[in-house]
């Protein structure tokens, strides 16, 4: 078993040194002989064992004695550890590719490819917003009534539901990616605006009125709110200007937004959003998957179109 672990280690080291390459070749020969149930006749295992013992004995005699006595079992342990760690490494790479995190979808543990955990960052719905904490129930669209929410490509076969907030940095990052994917894939795109700050509550009502008045113009309005400076979207004059530029009558929309009936409907809509059990934005539902935080574009694409999304 020592030959196997040596071959693996030396093959890796052999990338950097010719001496290790030649040792790796010896180890390979030894491995091939072992797997065909023949003894290793190159003396490789003896040679390496002696070298290792020679090194260890200068540090600790007891350690060398133990190593000499349990050399084969220790080799087995190292091989098993290697196989275990190799499995987790491969799994980590796969999960990172598919979910944007080495630990799995929406899992926040350390990931070497995303050390700062950007793929899982969300704007929590905080103190200044209606408090929504992660519940025991999983985040889901089950029992949530999506009627009345803005929809793009209503006839699309596949479905994307995006919960985001104009004031949320991570929503701003994810929105253009998801929106583009929805357009490219002709997927049904439902936008659930959920303000993470009270100051942007107002935009929920503006958005509701704008969508009711003209659904087509609505999306350019959303695009502008997501790309504008965050300080601007709380400014009424900016909202007016944006509404006008989108082709709306700003006065009409703002009047509608101040209507108590609108407030009631919007509150109802927000309570529907809360029913999803989400706890931060962006939260994206693609088909049956829930993606929390801004993921790399490929993760959304894989969720919508499968692993071979790029071949479609």
């Amino acid at each position: 078993m020592f030959c196997v672990i040596s071959f693996i280690v030396l093959s890796i080291l052999g990338v950097f040194s010719a001496e290790n390459r030649s040792l790796a070749r010896e180890a390979l020969d030894c491995v091939l002989r072992r797997v065909t149930l023949r003894p290793c006749n190159t003396g490789f295992d003896e040679k390496m064992k002696a070298r290792i013992l020679g090194f260890v004995i200068t540090k600790t005699e007891t350690g060398a004695r133990i190593l000499n006595r349990f050399f084969e079992p220790l080799s087995w342990i190292f091989v098993l550890l290697f196989l275990g760690s190799a499995f987790f490494a491969v799994r980590g790479v796969y999960l990172f590719y598919v979910t944007g995190s080495c630990n799995g979808l929406n899992q926040s543990g350390f990931c070497v490819f995303d050390p700062t955990g950007q793929s899982n960052q969300i704007s929590n719905v905080g103190e200044s917003c209606p408090v929504v904490l992660p519940g025991e129930d999983p985040v889901s669209l089950k029992g949530v009534n999506l009627d009345g929410f803005p929809v793009l490509n209503a006839e699309g076969e596949k479905s994307i539901v995006f919960i985001g907030s104009y004031g949320c940095e991570y929503s701003r990052k994810a929105y253009p990616v998801v929106r583009q994917l929805a357009e490219k894939s002709a997927a049904r795109f439902t936008f659930l605006y959920y303000p993470v700050k009270e100051s942007s509550d107002y935009l929920a009502k503006v958005g509701y009125c704008a969508y009711r008045q003209d659904a087509e113009k609505y999306w350019s309005l959303v695009d502008t709110f997501f790309t504008a400076e965050r300080s601007q979207i709380e400014d009424e004059s900016f909202i007016r200007q944006t509404l006008s530029e989108a082709g709306y009558n700003a006065d009409t929309i703002l009047f509608c937004a101040s209507d108590p009936q609108t407030e009631w409907v919007v509150k109802k809509q927000l309570s529907e959003v809360v029913k999803t059990g989400f706890f931060g934005t962006p939260t994206v539902f693609i088909q049956n998957e829930v993606l929390i935080g801004p993921k790399p574009p490929r993760v959304y694409a894989i969720a919508l179109n499968g692993l071979l999304y790029w071949a479609r």
Binding site: E46, K47, K49, A50, R51, L53, F55, T58
Partner: peptide, 13 residues
């Protein structure tokens, strides 16, 4: 005790 092992260890240590 393998003679090669002794020689290799002498060299190494």
């Amino acid at each position: 005790v393998d003679h090669h092992r002794i020689a290799l260890m002498l060299d190494q240590m």
